[in-house]
């Protein structure tokens, strides 16, 4: 019986976030949130391992109370349990402090043999959470996993393929192991009606800063973060290039090719 953990994040649809040109603040109001797409692939990888070898899948997130909806999405497609870590003091955390809190909260739920994460989040896109969580758990790690060959429960190890520049490596790692997942071979499944109903009824366990054993307040949220963002500004736009308008596609392309030819570009 494998005890499997999937760490997920609710993210804003970054394509819809805008910046207030007057204040320079990000406008997030009305921007829908969703389960980070690669986390859906990570969950799929975890559920497939569960279906093949037996086990239970716990899904965990840290975020505002509304992040519960991302957990219910996961419950609808194969997660058995869900844990929400939420509280004001956790806000503003970078990966250093988020990994600290998630591991401490997960420890309350027992020991895990396998931990899955998406390769990176849509909004932060640092790809740091997986390796940092693996370090916190004292687990081995296989980042950028393309597919899972085998979990050898007797020997206590897992074999998976890792995407590298110019090829793929087969890696064997002892359990517990954390895998960060690429999308290609783990398309998220659609929830069944039964799954949706079960997800609606399921209990989501909630941990606040007061419920996690041994949590050091100096290591959570902003005080526990290694990085800060002292400044944001709108990207400076260069001056526009030469616009080609010859009153038609044929003439425009002809002019373009002439210019490219003169510049030695073609």
């Amino acid at each position: 019986m494998l005890n499997i953990l999937v760490c997920v994040k609710q993210v804003p649809d970054v394509d819809l976030v805008t910046m207030d040109p007057e204040t320079g603040n990000l406008v997030r109001e009305g921007v829908p949130s969703m389960l980070n797409p690669l986390d859906g692939n990570a969950l799929e990888a975890a559920v497939r391992v569960k279906e093949r070898y037996g086990g239970a899948v716990t899904v965990i997130t840290m975020g505002p109370p509304a992040a519960e909806s991302a957990l219910r999405e996961c419950l609808a497609v194969g997660a058995d349990r869900a844990v929400l870590v939420t509280g004001r003091p956790f806000g503003g955390a970078d990966t250093l402090s988020t990994s600290y809190v998630l591991e401490a909260a997960a420890r309350m739920e027992g020991r895990f043999d396998l931990i899955f994460c998406g390769k990176e989040s849509l909004d932060g896109a640092t790809g740091q959470m997986g390796p940092q969580l693996a370090e916190r758990f004292g687990a081995t790690q296989i980042t950028g996993s393309l597919l899972i060959d085998e979990v050898d429960i007797e020997r206590g190890c897992i074999t998976a393929r890792r995407e590298l520049e110019g090829g793929t490596a087969a890696v064997e790692a002892q359990l517990p192991c954390l895998l960060t997942v690429e999308k290609a071979n783990f398309p998220a499944r659609l929830p069944s009606l039964k799954g949706k109903m079960a997800a609606k009824r399921a209990q989501v366990k909630v941990y606040t800063e007061n419920d996690i054993d041994g949590l050091d307040p100096k290591r959570i949220g902003v005080p526990g973060s290694g990085t800060v963002v002292p400044e944001i500004y709108p990207p400076k736009l260069p001056e526009p290039g030469q616009m080609i308008d010859e009153g038609g596609v044929e003439a425009g392309v002809s002019k373009l090719l002439e210019l490219l030819s003169a510049a030695g570009a073609i």
């Binding site: 640092t126 790809g127 950028g144 590298l164």
Partner: peptide, 22 residues
């Protein structure tokens, strides 16, 4: 790279420091 992004963040946690990417 795939390997740089594999060990650098992990090392940051081991020595308790901040890590940025990209």
């Amino acid at each position: 790279t795939a390997n740089g992004r594999d060990f650098a963040p992990r090392c940051a946690v081991r020595i308790n420091t901040g890590c940025t990417s990209d």
